[in-house]
């Protein structure tokens, strides 16, 4: 049961970092690119990418209720930075507000994830800069359509997940089997369904 839920959570987190990663990367590279073109290339993917985070946090709350609070409240101000960045980034991208707001939002989100990672790994704060760099590389690969490199940069963006999971001992923090069984019925069919549907958005919008 434990392994199953770590896999589900890992899948959702990987989905978030590999997909939203190129959104943030696109945002970080905006000062150096043709901005309208870069943003419209990302638009069809955008909403689908960001919702993986919502799903991941939902699973974290229900399957690991005693972990979620510790993780989040333990880095309260880091998440304030991260979420404020996410609010600015999402609003600015979806409404095509000023490009520097997209950039600032992306920077806040990626530094926020970096700080959270550094906190989990007990690493010095400058390690936080790894995340903006990885996202920027991933964004570059996406924007230049180097599809052969895409799995590589995606894997790099997801690399912090096993590192972070390695620092956490979940035994005793998980929900009771009754709750987990119920959730399994929901989570396991939904994730592949969303993947197929999101894939069709991409297929349709590139027609």
């Amino acid at each position: 049961m434990e392994t199953l839920w770590l896999v589900v959570l890992g899948t959702l987190a990987t989905g978030y970092f590999t997909l939203a990663g190129f959104d943030y990367g696109t945002g970080l590279l905006l000062p150096f690119r043709r901005r309208d073109e870069a943003l419209s290339r990302m638009t069809p993917f955008f909403l689908g990418n960001e919702v993986w985070l919502v799903a991941a946090v939902g699973v974290l709350l229900a399957a690991f209720p005693r972990l979620e609070g510790e993780l989040l409240s333990g880095s309260h101000s880091v998440f304030t930075l991260l979420l404020a960045g996410l609010v600015l980034f999402m609003a600015a991208v979806q409404l095509r507000l000023w490009w520097w707001l997209v950039f600032t939002g992306a920077l806040m989100v990626s530094v926020g994830w970096g700080l959270f990672l550094a906190h989990l790994l007990d690493a010095p704060p400058f390690v936080a800069l790894v995340m903006p760099v990885l996202f920027a590389v991933h964004g570059w690969v996406f924007q230049n359509r180097r599809w052969a490199l895409f799995p590589v940069s995606a894997a790099l963006c997801a690399l912090p997940i096993p590192l972070a999971f390695g620092t956490i001992d979940v035994s005793g923090l998980m929900a009771h089997p009754a709750t987990l069984t119920l959730l399994a019925w929901v989570a396991i069919p939904v994730i592949p369904l969303v993947v197929v549907l999101q894939w069709s958005i991409v297929a349709i919008s590139s027609r």
């Binding site: 939902g58 709350l61 009754a178 709750t179």
Partner: peptide, 27 residues
Amino acid sequence: YAGDVFGAPLAVETLVAFFLESTFLGL
């Protein structure tokens, strides 16, 4: 304290409703 119970409908919401809703809306 209550995550085992309270978390269940909340997680079902994020997965079945919200996750799917945004995807259908995108389509």
